[in-house]
Every structure is written in structure tokens, then in C-alpha cells.
Design a protein around this nucleic acid. Structure first.
Length: 274
DNA sequence: ATGCCATACGTTGTATGA
């Protein structure tokens, strides 16, 4: 079972590349962010040709998140709910159950500049996500929260912690919010498999930053323990960030891929050979 | 390293991103 997540930076502009990549990498569950599409403009037929159903939440122009699955797509929920009835209607949260896994695709607000109204809104959104975890989710149930968190959890996740524009993505309140997600019971599975520094998922388009590895690790796959225990490999597909590998211009983000052992294969006693 | 790029919207520019 293969799970992937990718900030595609416009599914409209990136469609050929995304489809070619999916056909090549064959994710069973494929979370996308920044589709920049309204729900009715999602190219469902193109995904269906590859065997995927798609759940999507987006208003168009900005944001937009989706989950493509070829292992079932049930209990679709769009928008981040909260106790007071507030829900994200900006296209930043969609969830569905796929092959017994609760899958969540998120696009956390950017925040722009520390202290700005956008930064406050980012912290509020992350607080609501934490509240949703504690109210509506269960750390003993297989769940994957995937997407563009717009937070680099540690200094090793950014090329220069002092140089980040406006100091967002690295500020203590943002990092604390993501730490609270881990404290609740989510595992940073990419870190578990790749403790090295400089394992980035985003590089600015400008100034050759990709080739100089001037970037940040801001896209994440956070798993509850029962699912993290099944993970056998984690790949960050740096090739997908290169112009030459797939059709069209690359996104400024690289995809993450997590491979899992089948639920049955973790049994203590393997099935008898046929 | 305050944008040299890329996107959307819409029209030769502005807003946004991280």
C-alpha cells in the first residue's frame, strides 16, 4: 500500500505532470494540495482513467485540497470542523476513509509575516486542527494527516533559520502547534525514516535554489502509531521537482511517498504457503 | 534571499506564495 502527498501548485497547470507522475509512482492514496480549483473543475475523468476516485475541497483560484484513491473513498468530509461550528470553507481540509485508513489532506495557511493578521489566522487554523484531533480523532485508529503544513519543525528542516522571509514557518508558536499534533499521537514518519538535515520538500523557484538545496521541509506525513508501525519505506521524490523528468514545469514542492506493509503481513504467524 | 519564478486573473499590471 502506497500513500503519497504533493503540493502540486495548481492542478490545472500541473495536470499532465501530476498524471504522469501518478502513473509512474502508482500511489494507492494520493493527497494533493494547492489544486487552485473549484470542485466542479477537478478533472475527475483523467484520474478515473488511472483508476482513481477523487475527493476535493476547493473554491477556485486559491488553496484547494484533494484525495485521489484507488482503494476506496468513503466518509468524505470537506472543511475543518470545530466545536463552535466553524468550518474551513477556504479549501484547506478534506478527509476520507481509504482502505481502512482515515486520510486527511491539509493546506495550512502560509502566514506571510510573523505578527501579521495572516500569521494570527495561521495559528488559529493550527489550533482548530489540534482541537479537531482531540475531539474527532483517535490516536489508536489508523490515520494519516498529509499535506503542506507550512511549518519547518526543526532548524535542520530549513536552509537558514534566520533567513526565512518574515520568520514564518520557523517561529516557536507555529512549531509548538505542530509539536502538539505529535504529542497527541501523530508520528512524523518522514523524520523517523530520514533523520538527516536538509531533507527538504520545497525550494523557491528563483535563483537556482533547488540545485543549491536552499529549501525547507514543510510538507509532512503525520501518522497515528498503528499506521506508522506498518510503514516500511519513505521517499521524497526529488526527481519530480526537476524540469526534465515529467511533462511541463515542476511544482516548487516535491512529493512524499510512504510505503506500508499490508495489514495482514504484520501478523505474528504468516499465512501458510499455497 | 523582500525576489532573479510561477500561478491566477485578466490584460501589458497586481496579488499570492514560503
Amino acid at each position: 500500500m502506497r500513500l503519497a502527498t504533493w503540493n502540486v501548485n495548481s492542478l490545472k497547470a500541473r495536470l499532465d505532470r501530476v498524471l504522469a507522475w501518478a502513473a509512474d509512482k502508482q500511489p494507492d492514496i494520493f493527497c494533493m494540495q494547492e489544486t487552485k480549483l473549484a470542485d466542479e473543475l477537478v478533472p475527475l475523468l483523467a484520474f478515473r482513467e488511472l483508476g482513481y476516485e477523487v475527493a476535493h475541497h476547493g473554491l477556485g483560484t486559491w488553496n484547494g485540497v484533494g484525495i485521489a484513491s484507488r482503494v476506496g473513498l468513503d466518509e468524505i468530509s470537506a472543511g475543518l470542523p470545530s466545536e463552535d461550528g466553524w468550518a474551513d470553507d477556504g479549501g484547506r481540509f478534506v478527509s476520507a476513509t481509504c482502505a481502512g485508513i482515515r486520510v486527511v489532506s491539509i493546506y495550512v495557511p502560509n502566514g506571510r509575516v510573523v505578527g501579521s493578521e495572516f500569521y494570527i489566522a495561521k495559528l488559529e487554523w493550527l489550533a482548530r486542527l489540534n482541537a479537531w484531533l482531540r475531539q474527532a480523532a483517535d490516536p489508536t485508529v489508523p490515520m494519516a494527516v498529509c499535506g503542506d503544513f507550512n511549518v519547518a519543525p526543526e532548524d535542520i528542516d530549513v536552509w537558514d533559520p534566520t533567513a526565512v522571509h518574515g520568520a514564518t514557518h520557523v517561529s516557536p508558536p507555529e512549531r509548538n502547534a505542530v509539536a502538539r499534533m505529535r504529542e497527541w499521537g501523530l508520528v512524523d514518519v518522514v523524520r523517523r525514516f530520514h533523520p538527516e538535515s536538509g531533507f527538504y520538500t520545497w525550494w523557491d523557484y528563483r535563483a537556482g535554489n533547488f540545485h543549491k538545496n536552499i529549501g525547507m521541509r514543510i510538507d509532512h506525513v503525520y501518522l497515528t502509531e498503528p499506521l506508522a508501525d506498518r510503514a516500511v519505506a519513505v521517499e521524497r521524490d526529488r526527481d519530480a521537482r526537476k524540469p526534465s523528468t515529467y511533462p511541463g514545469i515542476p511544482s516548487d514542492h516535491a512529493p512524499l511517498i510512504v510505503d506500508f506493509a499490508d495489514a495482514e503481513s504484520s501478523r505474528a504467524t504468516p499465512p501458510a504457503a499455497a
